[in-house]
């Protein structure tokens, strides 16, 4: 019963994706949306043409570095500050509000500040880090707070110190939530990097997107966006897999 409904939803899923790609192809092939909508096959063949690999790989490298920096620095800061907020209750309202308000500032509005403070080549990394930071802060905080009252009671009665409670109970308990945060951060980190690049980075997918848009290079525009989407989806899928393994053990 369960496996039948599961295979049904897989089938529906494939149907949905097939309709999506088929629709894209048809609209492109019959130019239903004009010349700015290339067929799926055109975009893919443009993307896999070896003569363009140099161009794409340079841009991809820059964006991946920004994204990686965003994950490393933003993730580490979000995690550390969430742990601090959980250890020191008094800091918590301040840290919660500050990070929520900073997150509410549109990335594109912070971009100029980062450009001046850090320069055009570091701004994409910094914006990516800022986006990852908030997601990690929220998911880590939620995970740390999710330990059940019964678990906390047992630790208190056993005479556990706050630090022991943190690393023997709260941190392992927060692990699934932290991994979920890393998964959800994937598109956010790409968006941060690309917006940073739009503000004048020397290379990167964002730069390629803007110049292709302005110069009417339609296949280039679509291909670059497919690339940006792919790296986000791959990171998303990868953390999704880890998430499954972790959930099986930790819940």
């Amino acid at each position: 019963m369960a496996s039948a409904s599961r295979s049904a939803s897989v089938a529906y899923g494939f149907l949905g994706v097939a309709l999506f790609i088929g629709g894209w192809q048809l609209i492109g092939a019959y130019q239903l949306a004009g010349l700015t909508w290339p067929p799926f096959t055109t975009v893919i063949s443009y993307l896999i043409e070896p003569s363009r690999w140099g161009l794409f790989s340079r841009a991809l490298e820059a964006t991946l570095w920004a994204m990686g920096f965003g994950y490393a620095v933003g993730g580490a800061c979000g995690f550390t500050i969430a742990v601090a907020a959980s250890m020191f209750d008094r800091l918590r309202p301040m840290l919660d509000t500050t990070s929520a308000v900073v997150h509410a500032i549109p990335a594109i509005a912070i971009a100029p500040l980062f450009i001046i403070l850090l320069g055009t080549s570091t701004a994409p990394s910094a914006l990516s880090a800022l986006n990852v930071f908030f997601i990690m802060y929220v998911s880590t905080s939620a995970g740390l707070a999710a330990a059940t009252p019964a678990h906390r009671d047992v630790f208190r009665v056993l005479g556990a110190s706050k630090t022991q409670q943190l690393y023997r109970l709260q941190l392992p308990n927060a692990l699934p939530s932290i991994i979920t945060g890393l998964r959800l951060a994937a598109p956010a980190s790409v968006i941060g990097a690309i917006i940073g690049e739009w503000f004048g980075a020397p290379r990167g997918l964002g730069l390629l997107i803007v110049s292709a848009m302005q110069n009417f290079q339609i296949p280039l525009l679509w291909s670059t966006i497919v690339l940006a989407t792919a790296i986000s989806a791959i990171a998303y899928g990868l953390f999704g897999l880890i998430e499954r393994l972790i959930h099986a053990r930790f819940q």
């Binding site: 939803s9 949905g16 994706v17 598109p187 997918l205 848009m213 966006i225």
Partner: peptide, 24 residues
Amino acid sequence: GILTPLGLIFSSVPIVALIPVIAR
């Protein structure tokens, strides 16, 4: 069945990066 996976796919997509395509 059709919309759920598409919703999932789009939640993994940096949608802001799609703006130039839509603009074009």
